[in-house]
Amino acid sequence: MPRCWIEGAAVLGPGLPGWPASRAILTGEAPWLEAPTLVPPPALLAATERRRASLVVRLALAAAAEAIAAAGREAAALDSLFASSNGDGGVVGAILEALATPGGDVSPTQFHNSVHNAAAGYWSIGAGARLGSVSIGCHDDTWPAGLLQGVAQVAAWGRPLLLCGYDAPLPEPLAAVRPTAIPFATALVLAPEPGPRSLAAIEVAHGGPLPPEVQPGPLRRALEGVNPIARALPLLEALAAGRPARIGWPLLDGLAITLRLEPCHAA
């Protein structure tokens, strides 16, 4: 069962404006108040790219930058795994509209931005992150599948990894067949060894019995079912509270991914 250490965490979602401001909400010490997701412009991109960056790219880059800063790591020294179910739905939707319109032209810029690894590409350009990067997409299983793969990578290669999950609503008519109500992103820095910034040790497995479900609070009840990446919330809550946890994610085809978390009580 692969394991690793979480060093830095980030979150962006409705009423969750970054990790420091969200911590008390995640622990339940402060109430969660629904509010629009605030996504800062990506400071690390050049001015032109910053202006053009889509919501999806801004979401991913903001979460990635926050987690790296919290971990005190250099982006250039990290492998990365970007996990998203929908990718950049606005771009894909615009191309599908153009293709369905007689005489409609596909925009070359939209075409290169339509690849599923577009956010990862902008991250590597903006942050100077030139190590290996993988982008995955697994529908509603995207968060647990990305987490399992990320932990497996860290355990296999002994190198730290930026794990970034992000998803945003699709445009119509895709939204009707793939509802995603809100934008949500999270990022974690995963390390092969414990260090001074370690928040918790985690082990992740494919399979295993689902642990007893903890009664979800208002935050989880509102968000967990409406964005695939918000399925990270039980893990983020345990991390914020610094409490041991066993978490299970049922998967689409009747299987499960399970996680065990032990907080690191740094002096």
Partner: peptide
């Protein structure tokens, strides 16, 4: 019944 994953890096 093992893990399933889609890699999409263009």
């Amino acid at each position: 019944r093992g893990p399933a994953l889609t890699v999409s890096t263009a």
